[in-house]
């Protein structure tokens, strides 16, 4: 069937393109202009100056350290999620005990708990165990709040493994641990990469837990660094936007090289 072009939709699509792309253009063009040049020309004009100084400023004003902190938090969160979620999902999908299905229902309800709702007790808890202003104190709750969606995603993947395969393993006398390592993990690679990307995004973009649970510059993460940069040097717009641009580079790289995993990770439960 031949479809004729839909001009009205085309026009609408281009209007939305402008709304999405113009701010991004302003962001990028500002970062390569001198502050004076940006101020004189205005944000929408074509740049007349070129400099990389804004990126240098952003990095030297602490973003190097903030990046390192965010990387530590992200690695910690992804590591914890990959350690905790696969055995849990395996139990949910394969265990016949009532406890396992009760636990799954609990995690479904866990989806409903917004981080804001428990931030006061989490603050109390982290303080009590002495992890305030410590990156580990950010990693633990961030990972905990990534668990419900990751569990739903990974149990979905594990359900797609046919029961015959499990039975064949069991027939050969495989223990649950052996089935898990030899069968479940290798056949769940898609789900594992989705939950890795999802939890990495949660950690990379996380704001509330670092805001409440850290205070000093040595534990500052990128998102908080942007907020802080904005309150302190709000008038240095090119420098600020260079920092914003830098903060999205790692996610952009994942987008370019692992688009499928990123889209699925972004969609989380929404895409299921």
């Amino acid at each position: 069937m031949k479809t004729r072009p839909n001009y009205l939709a085309g026009i609408g699509a281009f209007i939305w393109l402008a709304i999405v792309a113009v701010p991004l253009y302003v962001m990028l063009s500002a970062t390569f202009q001198t502050r004076a040049g940006f101020g004189d020309n205005g944000p929408l004009s074509l740049p007349t100056t070129f400099t990389l100084q804004n990126y240098v400023d952003a990095v030297t004003s602490g973003f190097g350290l903030y990046f390192l902190n965010t990387v530590i938090v992200t690695v910690g969160v992804v590591g914890l999620v990959l350690l905790l979620v696969p055995p849990l999902s395996y139990a949910i999908v394969r265990s016949q005990s009532r406890a396992a299905s009760a636990i799954f229902r609990l995690f479904l309800l866990g989806l409903a708990i917004p981080a804001q709702a428990v931030i006061v007790p989490v603050f109390y808890l982290i303080n009590t165990v002495g992890l305030y202003d410590n990156l580990l104190g950010v990693i633990l709750p961030t990972a905990a709040f990534a668990l419900p969606i990751c569990t739903i995603i990974l149990s979905g993947t594990m359900r797609d493994i046919t029961p015959e395969l499990y039975e064949a393993m069991a027939m050969d006398g495989a223990t649950p641990a052996r089935s898990f390592l030899r069968l479940v993990l290798p056949l769940s690679k898609g789900g594992l990469s989705t939950i890795a990307v999802f939890s990495a995004l949660q950690a990379w973009n996380g704001f509330l837990f670092p805001l409440i649970l850290t205070q000093s510059e040595s534990t500052r993460v990128v998102t908080l660094g942007l907020f802080n940069f904005q309150t302190q040097f709000g008038i240095n717009i090119p420098g600020l936007l260079a920092a914003v641009t830098l903060s999205m580079v790692p996610v952009l790289l994942v987008y370019l090289f692992a688009r499928r995993a990123l889209v699925q990770g972004l969609m989380g439960a929404g895409g299921k």
Partner: peptide, 19 residues
């Protein structure tokens, strides 16, 4: 060859503690 619910415990305890 089915896993018992103990497989679910580490994640559940962790989630319970923080949520």
């Amino acid at each position: 060859g089915r896993p018992g619910f103990v497989w679910a415990l580490p994640a559940s305890i962790f989630f319970a503690l923080f949520a």
